[in-house]
Design a binder for these strands. Sequence first.
DNA 1: GGTTGACCTGAAACGCGTTTCATACTTTAC
DNA 2: GTAAAGTATGAAACGCGTTTCAGGTCAACC
Lengths: 324, 324
Amino acid sequence: MTNIKDLAKMARVSVATVSRVLNHHPYVSEEKRRSVLEAIRTSNYQQNINAVHLSKGKTQMIGVVVPFSDHPYFALLLKGIAKQALDQHYKLVLFQTDYRESMELEALQMLKQKQIDSLVICSRTCDWSTIEEYVPFGRIVVCEDSKGKQVSSTSVDQYKIFRSALEYLYQNGHKKIGYCIGRKSGTNAQNRERAYRDFHEKYQLSYHPEYIMDQCLYFEDGEKVMNQLHDMNQPPTALLVTSDQVAAGIVTCCQKLNISIPGQLAIIGFDNEPIAKMMDITTIEIPLVEIGKNLFLQAINDEITNDEVSFRLIERGSVSEKRD
Amino acid sequence: MTNIKDLAKMARVSVATVSRVLNHHPYVSEEKRRSVLEAIRTSNYQQNINAVHLSKGKTQMIGVVVPFSDHPYFALLLKGIAKQALDQHYKLVLFQTDYRESMELEALQMLKQKQIDSLVICSRTCDWSTIEEYVPFGRIVVCEDSKGKQVSSTSVDQYKIFRSALEYLYQNGHKKIGYCIGRKSGTNAQNRERAYRDFHEKYQLSYHPEYIMDQCLYFEDGEKVMNQLHDMNQPPTALLVTSDQVAAGIVTCCQKLNISIPGQLAIIGFDNEPIAKMMDITTIEIPLVEIGKNLFLQAINDEITNDEVSFRLIERGSVSEKRD
DNA sequence: GGTTGACCTGAAACGCGTTTCATACTTTAC
DNA sequence: GTAAAGTATGAAACGCGTTTCAGGTCAACC
């Protein structure tokens, strides 16, 4: 394999000049540039990227940690990140953690070792304090509110979403409202529960802990939810479902069970995935791909910013009959 | 940042000895080992992984190219690959290509530059000849039959699957059978079409080109398929759908349209995703996670092997009423 | 007693591109 | 006409860990 030294010899210039040509530095005479390019062509030269990384201390790679890449929520974030990464000539190193802390630590470790320039954490298990330990080693960006912390973030206000969705259901006559989430721990879950409690307090509604269902991630979990509702003597009349996939599963299950929607059960999904449109599910639109793009941009930007993106309720037929 | 030289000074040994300690080489006296470990502890030493990569000429990273990571088929392959990678302490570099050749070339380029040790190509657009150019630079493994080529592969025989599925439908009385695939180009599509033609020839059935529908990837594409069927004056009575997602979308759509399944339309899905079980869809089980694992193992193995995995028809209620 | 082999260690070479610094020649600018 | 600014180039330092090679010690074996 020819290296930069060989090239220099072939083109009868110094390695510095070869490096300048390779990096499009302006201060190279046309004559020498041509000579170097000729040497590159004839030798079939291939830059050793690892030497570049060592030398520059940068790798043009950013890590992305997601618990599962097969869930539409994360898949869409990933799509946005990947799209932006492509434009900026960055590569992505994927960490599928399954919410295991050890995997998150590995990702942080890579940041420390300079194998990645930045790390985007889409969802985490580890403590804030753990993350903060790694702040000196590279940019970290998260997908939840991180004001006051030394990391950038792009997030939607889950508290606000929940409050407004609950309010909407209340306006539609619902007083027994449940909700389905992916997992009980995590910032999002906390904010949602806070919103849920505050809402109940405001309207003096009775609080049913069993109305909160977790481990709802995929379409097929809709069946699980319906089984749980079936076991309640006072099932909720409306559900907030933090994934359109699950919402669609619930709707499908209701059709099988002859439960009318929205008559007997109202549903609000999340994310406005295509499946929600197809199945006429009222949903909260969250611009996941946009969030992904922004996460990436923050990952390569030196400034620390905390961006909040807006959401939007899309009224379809799963809460009240559509009014066209 | 302390480096290995500093450590050597601190521990009063040579850098070679420090390197030996770091790499668990046996020939180091207990005394020096302790001394080095002590230096590591007090200095908070962090290995510069890029130097390791340069020095070793290996990165312990493998590239994975998928067209979309948000499609369950690829998400499951990815899951298998990621799981195995974790066990073997490899990192994954993800290339979401959207079937753009330029992205595939970038991945191959990384192989050439030694930024990744191997490349797993789950689905491709580029020619075989392009791939073969890169064979000298690292291991390449693909997810389609590659016998006779210098790359490993793990695949299922799509021809065989299609023949057996068509046969099954024929045994169940169907003579007008259509199928839905992701894209028309690609090895899989060719093999499927060949099977389809051979099947028609065997039973002397008339061949309707419009029975072949492509661009079917997601749940919501089920609606598209039903619209297409609706426009035919002789719609097929059975469909082979190469994704359970799409199959589920079709089933859902049929419920809306009051088309009975399997009475008016029989469906065979692919992959045996959970959604197929939930919606009682007869499907071809393909062990995607296992395939992913095997792909990874081939990616780190020097031998070139061509593995074929088996599939299995899972009879549920979307072709004939279940016989329990 | 001598040979063999296992064990231990450090100097030096190796992998390779980037960047700084010093130098020198041209152009502008006033 | 001369100082300042811009252009061009190469030597050398820098980033840093791995691995080979040569040299040495010590125990075991014949």
